[in-house]
Design a protein around this nucleic acid. Structure first.
Lengths: 156, 156
DNA sequence: GATGAAATAGCATTTGC
DNA sequence: GCAAATGCTATTTCATC
């Protein structure tokens, strides 16, 4: 599943994770390649899917979402139909910004954003309605380490 | 803490969250503004901090990190010193890509990436060594809903 | 097979309105 | 917020190692 990336690819990916808001010539200088070669490599990394997308990361507070929560969910019934129905419901709840199947103490882990407490509560209620049994909520209090780049250049 | 954003700002932010890999003229067409005005607004949003950064989102599998885990941590001692020491340790572990203080069943929630099981285990051991008491690991199995934009245009 | 250099078309950015 | 102007960049092409 993993692609073979050489040292220059890894440096490109590291730089682009840290800051993708730079010109191609700037990026080229950083990795010591010509702009043309740099452009070619970055395009290949996008086409290969290693770079999923270039995106704007917002400050949730400043954007009007002071409440964030992690919600771990255990489903009431574990039939394939019930699971698919629940997953479809998650797609339709815009305040659910991430959802994953996990292995461990729970079945699913969901990330929620909300503008205020009533909105948070409405989302939790919707989860219950759609088949969530045990719901454990962890309310975000403080960021310790903000999303950091994958450690591509580290010794394995 | 929240900024006042008008409808055009919200559309700009929504578009940039979905795909920031577009030219300014393209973005201008999408929101119905001139390129100059669009550039001005986007720059203001960056300076205000609503846009934290523009970043490349990678595919963790293709980038060589097939193992991801959420780890909830309860600290052995809750003295300010112990907490600060633990948080400092997190900054130094490159496989820890996100860390937050939460309220609920646990104290901290951490996101980890690893290339293989031994690497994952090494990280978990480092967490124990630095003061983590109860460690609950949720291993990522499958993405249900990939990181979605903040629902800026939704009715509150 | 990937890189570099040169050329063109298009864009980012500024200024004045 | 818009329109026009300029300097720079993205992008292509072609030659090269």
């Amino acid at each position: 599943m993993a692609l073979s990336l050489d040292e220059i690819d890894r440096r490109l990916l590291t730089e682009l994770q840290a800051d993708a808001d730079r010109t191609n010539v700037e990026l080229a200088r950083l990795v010591g390649l010509s702009p043309a070669a740099t452009l070619h490599r970055v395009r290949r990394l996008k086409e290969a899917g290693v770079i999923r997308r270039i995106t704007a990361e917002l400050d949730p507070d400043l954007a009007g979402f002071p409440l964030r929560a992690y919600v771990s969910v255990t489903l009431a019934r574990h039939t394939p139909t019930a699971e698919r129905a629940f997953q479809a419901a998650l797609q339709d709840i815009p305040q659910v910004v991430v959802a994953e199947v996990v292995a461990g103490e729970t079945d699913l882990l969901i990330q929620i954003v909300a503008r205020d407490v009533p909105e948070l509560q409405r989302v939790l209620t919707r989860l219950s309605v759609h088949g969530a049994q045990r719901i454990v909520t962890l309310l975000h209090l403080q960021e310790i380490k903000t999303r950091s780049p994958l450690p591509l250049t580290d010794p394995a």
